[in-house]
Design a protein around this nucleic acid. Structure first.
Lengths: 238, 238
DNA sequence: TCAAAAGTGTTCTCTTTACACCCATGT
DNA sequence: ACATGGGTGTAAAGAGAACACTTTTGA
């Protein structure tokens, strides 16, 4: 059984006491979404461990590839979660025993873990979520309305939510969240959703165009009333 | 002998494969300084390891206290250095054998380490550098002219130097580098040193006062010709 | 009283803000 | 033609830059 093997052998190929967790953020229907995997009755951030001779960056990219199929995602370091008692043995115990698997007190998973948290912005339309070995389900959840989560993962996700807000004010490039090409109104709505505040339409458009990163494409047809918006895509090398 | 004990037993109480390194930055004679410890012929950043049940933050504060005597320093996370081959066994071997200590291939120190790098701004006048167990010397070096260093520590210090430049533009609070009270010309010179560029005197003063973080004190006497500068200190809660 | 250094003020420019106006399209 | 919604322009307010002017002190 996958869970039992995970408990006994999972720790052999990885650096002990160190994990990586990724807050994978998408956008759909004017809502920020977060990819989570279910184990038992609660959910977890996609994450994993770092091979003995594997770069941390490679490990994070590997997890991204496994869970979303994306090869070259936008990844950003979030924070170290390094509390001395960051140990979730009791949570695991409750779940493992409920699954009917013998609990092994000395399993590598029961020790204290320092986790390196990252966040990633992805185009949900291109992501293909896939469960990990011991996951029972995987899916997208509203980042502002998360389900019950294992460990401190809800706190990590919340931290990513705040960081995204901060980061978007500096680097305007959050375009990964929208499938290209996108329209200016779509981009405008995205920024308003992330920042949770109204942004002046006029000013927003000028600021975006002033970055010089956007390339305007011909208008597209649409069915709703009103003028057709232009489409944009990111310029090469942007 | 301290070194031999360090090689055999140093790894028992700490999380394996994880270290913390701190770029401790001071300021003296219009120059940024960096605190380094010498082992053999090269220098290292102050650093250490994280106890099995010790918070990462606590570990960093502990190293700060040990090396500088400072209780509540300004600490800031810098970056994860997590390359898969971040292993310095060969460097250690050369040094250890030169010291006449038998080299132990399986010593904990010969494995791959992920390091969490921090930087700290300190008032050199209040710091009291103290060697670690296996250090042969400790001292301040110009951050822009570092000596030969072990491992990738020179790269870490350089990274901190860049980060400081970036950070000071956002948060103007670098005052830890100056003993209080300080004068506006001193603060002006400090910022120019950090940013490596001339800053308009007038504008700088106005911007600093506009933050509302500074409290003006009476002028001080001085011996050089010219007007006496006011003294400033940080307001409570600033 | 002059030179040096610190502090303040003035002007110009550029950016940000708020809002009005113009354009395109489906009903 | 008009309601709807995208795109552009403009005037007012604010922040930033450059530099001139004033004040204080030692020699």
């Amino acid at each position: 059984m996958a869970l039992e093997k995970f408990l006994t052998e999972g720790g052999k190929e990885f650096l002990p006491n160190l994990s990586v967790d990724i807050v994978i953020i998408g956008y759909q229907q004017q809502t920020l979404k977060c990819l989570l995997a279910r184990i038992g009755s609660k959910w977890m951030l996609p994450g994993g461990f770092v091979g003995y001779n594997e770069s941390v960056d490679t490990a994070v990219a590997r997890v991204m590839k496994q869970r979303t199929g994306l090869e070259d995602p936008h990844l950003r370091f979030l924070a170290v979660f390094g509390e001395g008692n960051r140990n979730f043995a009791m949570q695991w115990k409750a779940y493992i025993e409920k699954e009917g698997v013998p609990w092994q007190e000395d399993s590598w998973i029961n020790s204290r873990f320092v986790t390196l948290a990252y966040y990633s912005l992805v185009d949900m339309a291109h992501a293909q979520p896939e469960k990990g070995a011991i996951d029972e389900a995987i899916g997208w959840f509203p980042l502002d309305n998360l389900p019950s989560m294992w460990m401190d993962h809800a706190a990590i996700a919340t931290r990513a939510r705040e960081q995204l807000k901060t980061d978007i004010r500096r680097e305007h490039v959050t375009h990964n969240l929208l499938p290209e090409p996108f329209t200016m109104p779509e981009l405008h709505q995205l920024h308003q959703t992330i920042l949770e505040e109204k942004l002046d339409r006029s000013r927003f458009q000028k600021k975006m165009l002033a970055t010089g990163l956007l390339e305007r494409l011909p208008k597209r047809q649409k069915d709703s009333p009103g003028r057709n918006p232009y489409q944009y895509q990111l310029k090469e090398g942007g």
